[in-house]
Structure formats: structure tokens, C-alpha cells
Design a protein around this nucleic acid. Sequence first.
DNA 1: GTCTATATGCAGATAGAC
DNA 2: GTCTATCTGCATATAGAC
Lengths: 195, 195
Amino acid sequence: MPTTANTIMSVAIELFYKKGYFATSLSDIARLCGIKKASLYYHYPKKEDLLKAILVNAMQAVARVLDEALAGNAAIDVKLARAIAAHVDFHIKHQKEVLISDSELRGLSPDNRETIIAMRKAYEARIQALIAEGVEAKVFARTNVKVASYAILTLCSAVANWYRTNGPLTGIEIIRVYQDLILNGLREGKGLRFS
Amino acid sequence: MPTTANTIMSVAIELFYKKGYFATSLSDIARLCGIKKASLYYHYPKKEDLLKAILVNAMQAVARVLDEALAGNAAIDVKLARAIAAHVDFHIKHQKEVLISDSELRGLSPDNRETIIAMRKAYEARIQALIAEGVEAKVFARTNVKVASYAILTLCSAVANWYRTNGPLTGIEIIRVYQDLILNGLREGKGLRFS
DNA sequence: GTCTATATGCAGATAGAC
DNA sequence: GTCTATCTGCATATAGAC
């Protein structure tokens, strides 16, 4: 039995995803929750609080998933493969939250926006560290680590834009494809060699 | 000397890009144009007309760029390489319009939205035809053509999210990287093999 | 915790003078 | 073509009863 706050949150995710943050009114949300819009304010004092919670939760969740993927020892290319798997898996399992995160950041006040950007940078830094370690160990070709990380992360995030649950591919198949593509690309002379 | 209509259009692109379509008011646009908001209605009867024009122009322009890239004969992998170059080049030269196209489609009425989606599908179909031809000719490995096209197009479009004009890389360098990555990926056993 | 009623503001859009 | 003035509606948010 979900709490009212939880119901509101899932309805908000649904509508922000489908119509966008600004185009979604609190009346829309209230109607779908089966309550009056004034009641929303008891649970979330401002509309922006809903958006902020969605983005913070998503960032924390994906960071946790990365934690698990990187726990334990492994060769650096295996580690990166696991990170890719975790990232892609999260992005196909949480398409709505992730697409909201990508397109509604501007709905936040400067303070809240900075919070999210900082979380995002911390996440990127962990991927960059993996790439740098692989380059250091000469497992990957020399490359501009930051640029490579942007290319890889946008590539792996973009899957949220086209993946469909009833599509012809399972998540595992897609992960396999992206792992091959990126790891081949990072090895000597094969692709992701940003100078 | 730009016409007023043109000024309005560039201001709209600037603001829709920076703040988003819904968060941009016609007063904002008018102020930056140095006119009163009622004057906007002489040039564009509805706010949505501005958004529609941006999306239609962008789609027409990128389709034209693809025309040029595919004019003349060439081997199928060379053709695809040219298509990638054209697509990436367009996406780094028109970042704002392209990012608006990607995130503000919901600002359009159903009719207008359908128009854009149809243009988009036609564009995708041309890329799919290239991939299919390469598979047919056994230059590329067998793969799910539609899925491969989505992966490739989102990959090549995502560059608009991270490319910076004063960044460390030129457009040509990025194009080279993406061409290598994708063409290697499509050849036998190297990556973009969606079953 | 949820309700009814309402305050307040600004949005998109129009009318009509110049 | 641009202006001033205004219409109309809906948005977020609050007050206070139950």
C-alpha cells in the first residue's frame, strides 16, 4: 500500500515524462492522484520539490548501482565493462526518470541545479578515473579522457531515448553491444581515440 | 540587415535553448528584440509557430545536408561515413536548434508533432537504407537494421550535448572518431551487431 | 491530511489607434 | 508594423475549516 507521498511521486514522474515539467500542472497531478491540488502542498511544499526529488533520487540510485558494479577487484577493462553494464541497465530500467533528468534540469532554481550538477560531475569523474587507469596501464590507447568520457556517457545514456520494453532486444543484448563497441573503441587504433 | 522576423527567430532559438520553450515567455522574447510583445503577433500569430518553424527548418536543413553527402556514387561504407560526417557536423554547428528539437517536441500540437515525426522517420529511413545496403553487400555484419540505426543516430546526435566550440577538439577530429567507431562496429564481429 | 475558497500573478492573445 | 491597453484564463500557492 503506497503512501500518498509515493503516489504523488509516481504520478509526477509519469506526467513530467509524458508532458514535460512546465506543461504539467499541479491540477493534473492531483486529478490523477484522486485528491485536490491543495492537498499536494501538505506533502510537497513547492512544485519544484517534486522535480528536485526525482533528479536527486535518480542520481543517487545510479551512483549506487555504479558502486555495486565496481565493488571488488578486476582488470581495468572488465571494470569498465561492468560500469557500462550498470549504466545502460539503469538507463533502460529507469527511462522516465532519466529522461526527465536530462531535459528538465532547467526547471530547478540555481541552488538546486548546482546540487545536481555536482552529483553529475562526481559520477563522470568516476568514469574518467576508469578510463585514465586503463590508459595508464596501456590497456586503452592514449585519448583525451574527459572527451572520451562524455562520448561514452552520452552514448550509454542515449539508449533511454530509443529502447522499448517490447522491442526486439533484451537489455542484456544491448549491454553486450555497447560493451563491445566501447571497449574495442578504446583499444589501440580502433575508434575512441580523441587526441 | 536582418528582418524583424529573423531577429525574433534567433532570439527565440537563444531563449528556447537556454530556458526551454515553456519557461520562455513572449515578453522575454520581445524585450530581447527591443519591441513590445504585441508586435510579435504581427510576425508569428502564435507562440507555437515559432517552435514549429525552428523544428521544421532544422529537419529540412539536416535532410539537405544528407542529400549533399549522398550525392554521387561511392562504396556503401564510404557513403555511410559521409552520412555520419554530415550528421555530426550539422549537430555541432547547430547545437541549439538540434537540442531544442530533441527536447521540445511536446510543445507542439498533435498535428504539428506528427509533421515533425514524419520528417524524422523519413530521415531515419535513409540511414536504415544505407545500413541495409551494406548488410546486403556483406560489407557489414548482419544486424537488426532499425535498432542499429537508432543506436547510431542517437550516438551521433548526442554530440550536441557535450561539444563545446572552445573545447580541445575540432569538429573534424570528432567526426573521424565517430566514423571509425561506427564503421568498425558494423563490420563483422566488432560491435554494432544487434541480433 | 484533505477539503473549499481564494489570493495573486503572469501567461498568451486581441482590439484598435497611430 | 508597432504601439498602448486590455481581455481571459490558468498557474502556483495560501488560509482556514473539518
